[in-house]
Design a protein around this nucleic acid. Structure first.
Length: 222
DNA sequence: CCAGACGTTGTT
DNA sequence: GTCTGG
DNA sequence: CCAGACGTTGTT
DNA sequence: GTCTGG
């Protein structure tokens, strides 16, 4: 699955190609984005800019509007019929930008985190859905990252992984008004051999720890 | 009809 | 809001 | 996702 | 064990 990720856009070009659009990158250096925190997304309804939404989808019918972090992920299988997701998958899709995400392997009592990124070093774009809750003073907007079965290299770490939109054409399709079947057809694992990963320091297990050193390879003790 | 859930991952 | 279970 | 709390009365 | 907070 995907329960933490990173997005570091400082020291890179300020423009990024997403779908058929050239967007200005938000300037952020987040090495440890955790559930309930704000992160940049590009929505189908306003595809010209990045907006900061809270991670963990809050359905529009929620009573208290609290982000409990329960819906940080949405399983691709059956997403079109889940009460919380059936509207968003049809009308509220978004792109979630990242440079890497994290998965954990349990070694005895230790939880060893790994950083996963593309072999070609380009941005990761997760398939996301978003929602708007209007029960309070201000509308509250949130998002969820869709998961699917793992490709070959991810299978060694976990049995789920985020859906990746690997090229501009796919990203464009995700944001466009396509039929439900053609949208669902995009929710599949990536090809094998496009990702790579390495262990990182377990200090990052704590969600409040956010530092560049998280991206430094970590020697796993045996 | 009303009440209560609505989610994922992982573990047993 | 909408579906399921009783 | 992981880490940390999980309780009350009374006192500062 | 389970919930909350980040």
């Amino acid at each position: 699955m995907c329960g933490r990720y990173s997005l570091v856009t400082t020291d890179v070009a300020v423009q990024i190609q997403l779908g058929n659009m050239q967007l200005e990158l938000p300037s952020i250096a987040r090495y440890n984005i955790a559930p309930t925190q704000f992160a940049p997304v590009v929505t189908n309804t306003q595809p010209g800019l990045f907006q900061h939404f809270t991670w963990g989808l809050v359905p529009f019918w929620s009573k208290d509007g609290k982000n409990t972090g329960k819906m940080i992920n949405a399983r691709a299988e059956g997403i079109e019929s889940k009460p919380s997701f059936r509207q968003p998958i049809r009308t509220k899709r978004c792109l979630v930008l990242a440079d890497s995400f994290y998965e954990w392997r349990k070694t005895g009592t230790q939880k060893q985190p790994y950083r996963i990124l593309l072999q070609n070093g380009t941005w990761l774009v997760f398939a996301g859905i978003w929602e708007e809750w209007r029960g309070g003073e201000q509308p509250m907007r949130s998002f969820s990252i869709i998961t699917t079965t793992p490709n070959r290299e991810m299978a060694t770490l976990h049995d789920r992984m985020p859906v990746l939109l690997l090229d501009a054409a796919t990203q464009q399709q995700w944001l466009s008004e396509n039929s439900l079947p053609s949208i669902l057809a995009l929710l599949k694992p990536p090809p094998d051999d496009v990702l790579t990963y390495y262990p990182v320091n377990p200090l990052m297990n704590k969600a409040t720890f956010d530092a560049p050193s998280i991206h430094t390879p970590f020697s796993v003790e045996f």
